[in-house]
Amino acid sequence: MREFKGRVIAAGEVTAEAVVTRQGFNTLASMQMMFIQSKTKCVDQSNPDIYKKILMGKALCLPQTIGSTTGGMFLYSAVQSGKAPACLLFSKEIDSLAAAGAVLADVWSENAKMPTVDRLGDEFLEYVQDGDTITVKPDGTVIVNR
């Protein structure tokens, strides 16, 4: 078990299985087919870390998001539609697109939430592996169980 502490972008408490990308998460490229998938799967051919893996309901561990500026609205729609990752856990400082998605979901969603924590450090992303059980606390504590 390892514990990490980051900065809270959108507070919440959740436990979920980790899915890990060590390269930038391209939100549009990854999630653009979620509207026809029963469970959101990554379809980004350029990201071998998570290509074809299920994202919905998982603790998505990533350095940052990249790519299209539709990113935030895709994340917001995913949260509102119940197809989003359970939480977003950033090793680095969150980028403007993911921050938009997290804040939009936080302010405009009545029920669904997507706890989001950033600045967890490079060590977090080096340590965490697919399949680990992740628990996120409202104060930004992230517990990784293996």
Binding site: T69, T70, G71, G72, M73, Y76, D95, S96, L97, A100, G101, L104
Partner: peptide
């Protein structure tokens, strides 16, 4: 800034 859709 690299604003997201909706934010812009």
């Amino acid at each position: 800034n690299r604003n997201s859709g909706i934010i812009e």
